[in-house]
Structure formats: C-alpha cells, structure tokens
Simulated assay, not measured.
Amino acid sequence: MKSTFLLAISLSLPIFSNAQHNHSHEQKPSNAREVWGDFEKDELIKTKLVDWTQTPIAGHVLKNGTPKKGFEFVDSIDIYSVVYDSDGFMVTGFMAVPKRQSKYPCVIFNRGGNRDFGQLLVGTALTHFGRIAAEGYVVIGSNYRGNSNSEGKEEFGGSDVNDVLNLVPALGQIEMADTSRIGLLGISRGGMMNYLAMKESCQFKAAIVVGALSDLNVMKEKRPDMESHVFAELIPNYNDSTEFALNARSANEWVNELCVDTKLLMLHGDKDDRCHPDMARDLHQKLSKINFPHTYISYKKGNHGLSSYQDEMYESIHMWLDKYVKNDQDFDEVPHLVVK
C-alpha cells in the first residue's frame, strides 16, 4: 500500500510538500458568480457533480477503466465542485461524499499554499478528500476568498478564516452531512487556518494538522522569502502593524484561546524545511503546560510532506477522525510520540 499512498501524495505536491512556496503572480479576476449564477434566497451552497474520469487524474488511478490497486475506493465516492457563500463572497472549493445515501460526519479540509498555488483541484478532491470520504465522511474544502475564481481577497489568515467557519452553515444544506460531528484537517498553511478556527469556535470535535504553520515569527526568521512575497503582499497593513499581524496568526502566541473541546493531533517531520519543526515543538510544550487534549507525533527525518511516512500518516489521520469525530470518544492519548 505504501507506493499507492506515495502516488496519491505526489499528485498534489503543492498541498503537502510545497505549500508555503509562493508563486508571485497577480491574482486572477474573480468570475465565480458568472460561472455559477447568483444564490437563490437562503441558499448558501451550490454543487456540481464532477466526472473525474474525464480529467487528467483518471490516468493515475484507472487502468482500462478499472481502479488500480489502492484506489478501489474511488468507486464508492462522488466528487463535487462547490461554491458557497462566505461573508457575501462566492468562494469555490470541492466536496467528496460516499455514494451510499446516509448521514455522515464531516471533515473540513484546509489547504496549504497561498493564492492559486496549492489550490484544490479535482485530483486533490479524489485522492485526498475521497480517501477519507470512503471511510464514511462528507469532506469539503475551500480555496479561500480571492483564489481559484473566488470573490474577495485573500488575507493569509485574516478575514479569510471565515471561509473555514462559513463552511459549517453551508454543510447544513448538504443532506448527507451531520453537522453535529465535524473535524478539521489542515495542511501547512491550512494548519494555521485550523488553529484560527479553533480560536473562534468550539463546534469542531477534533482537528489534525500536518506540517502546520503555527508561528509566523519563526517562519519570518527561517524563511525571509515568506515575509517579502507572502506576508507583505497578502496581510492587510502588514508594514504598519507587523508584530500584531504575525502574532494574530500564530497559535503559539495564544494557546489559552484554543477551544479545549477540540482534540488536536499534530503531525510534523523533524527535517521539515518549509515549516520549521521548532514551531510544533514549542506549541506542544505550551499545550502540555495547560493540559490541552493533544498528541504531537514527530517523524525522524520526515520532510514537510512526510513523504517517507505516508502509511503512518494516513493511519493516524483515520484513527483520530474515527475516534473523536465519528464516535466522539473520551480523550485518551499520550502527549508525544516519535516515529522512526
């Protein structure tokens, strides 16, 4: 199975491996409303079934029309492109659901990257959303405002955190979604979005972060290119309020404000050269001091995408979601594990 997981991860490298690298192109004009039309009265989300077999991802998961080994799950799910209302903006994304009609717990997938780099694509929805959906979940993710034909302007963890929170009422209009059971899965920058959502709301049963950005001050020190090409370009009034802007987006600075009802799983490689592991270590120590329900798993020689640990990573993700989102179990975990 390991080769299958590695293939799946390679199909969406911007999300798991290069999520903090920036392409400094101008944002594209928004045209979501032109494509989708206006929302009807009280409508919060529109969906369109995607025939993924007619997209490039099909060549990676099918052989002669049959799923390759490890991708058998694709026959049990449907993929939808979506647009939903977030503060009056039309924001784009994707959703994966089981084919079998029932009520399912939900997972909000928070992508990495910035602007259109790391954007959600059909391949992401199929190989990442779909793998989780096949286990009995409605999985949905946003491209955030201003990106991928969405309206508005990205703020890299500013008002665009509402694009995560507003997925909850949108899910309320999805017949198969049980919004009393919702989890978060955030990758790289998406981990920052997880933490910001946990600061604003206690409606999430559990959260998982992979290679998460949790301290922008560390990022500024370790990767100066992030400040010049991402922070300064996307964060409003950055040059006039740098310290405030960085701290407001850094969970390490406000651990006491994270909702203790959300069980947190932190996965981080100790050779991550994109989101330095010092961020995760420091956050783990601060969370431990206040007895926050969490587990920090560090991976020896693991990179940003944990490319050498795909089996272990997915096993931990599925276990955490099943225990704390699907089955709402009492927290019973060790605080720190090292995977060699």
Rank of each mutant, 00 (worst) to 15 (best):
Y137W: 12
Y144I: 04
D178K: 15
V139D: 04
G158K: 00
D163H: 00
G152H: 09
S150E: 02
G158C: 04
T127P: 02
F129N: 07
N147V: 01
S180E: 15
L121F: 15
E151P: 14
F129L: 06
E154R: 10
A134W: 09
I140Y: 14
A177C: 08
F129Y: 15
L126Y: 09
R131V: 05
G136N: 13
Q173Y: 10
G141L: 09
A170Y: 10
Q173R: 13
S148T: 14
A134F: 07
Y144E: 02
L120H: 10
V161M: 02
T124L: 06
G158Y: 02
L165S: 05
I174M: 15
V161F: 00
F156E: 01
E151S: 07
A125F: 13
N147I: 01
V139G: 11
A134M: 08
T179G: 08
D160M: 13
Q173H: 14
N149Q: 12
G172A: 11
D178I: 14
N147H: 03
N166A: 01
N149M: 13
A170E: 08
V122E: 15
Q173L: 09
H128A: 04
V139L: 13
T179W: 02
V161W: 00
R181P: 11
G146Y: 05
D163Y: 01
H128D: 01
S150Q: 02
E151C: 08
M176D: 15
L126R: 12
S148D: 10
S150L: 03
A177Y: 07
R181Q: 15
A134P: 07
G158P: 06
E155D: 04
N166V: 03
H128V: 07
R131W: 10
R131A: 10
I140N: 14
E135F: 06
G123D: 13
D163L: 00
A177M: 10
L120I: 12
D178C: 12
T127M: 06
E175D: 14
G157W: 03
L120M: 12
G136E: 13
L165T: 05
Y137A: 09
S150R: 06
M176Q: 15
E175P: 05
A170K: 07
P169G: 05
E175K: 10
D160W: 13
Y144C: 02
A170V: 11
N149F: 14
N162H: 06
T127E: 09
P169Q: 07
A170G: 09
T179E: 08
T127R: 02
I140H: 14
I132N: 05
I174T: 14
N149E: 10
N166P: 03
A134K: 14
F156C: 02
A177F: 06
L171F: 13
Q173N: 06
V138P: 14
R181V: 08
E135N: 13
S159V: 11
G172Y: 08
